[in-house]
């Protein structure tokens, strides 16, 4: 299990075993939604806030 720092609060965030690029994980420290942008090494970025639209 790898981990990476939250880009907002700096807390260490543990990635699930089978984490995939694109997956969204929540920071346990500040609650920020983080996008897994790399798995080896683990890297996180703030997940874009995408308004969900009915005509998707």
């Amino acid at each position: 299990m790898s981990e990476a720092d939250c880009v907002t609060c700096g807390a260490a965030v543990a990635l699930p075993e089978d984490a995939e690029v694109g997956e969204i994980v929540d920071c346990g420290g500040c609650g920020t939604e983080l996008e897994v942008v790399g798995v080896d090494p683990a890297e996180l970025a703030e997940a874009p806030d995408l308004a969900e639209d009915w005509g998707e």
Binding site: E23, I24, P48, L50, E56
Partner: peptide, 17 residues
């Protein structure tokens, strides 16, 4: 343009670009 979308796959939330 909406090039990225949040999806639910196998119970996981993901960003698809």
């Amino acid at each position: 343009r909406k090039s990225a979308v949040r999806v639910l796959e196998d119970g996981k939330k993901k960003i698809r670009r």
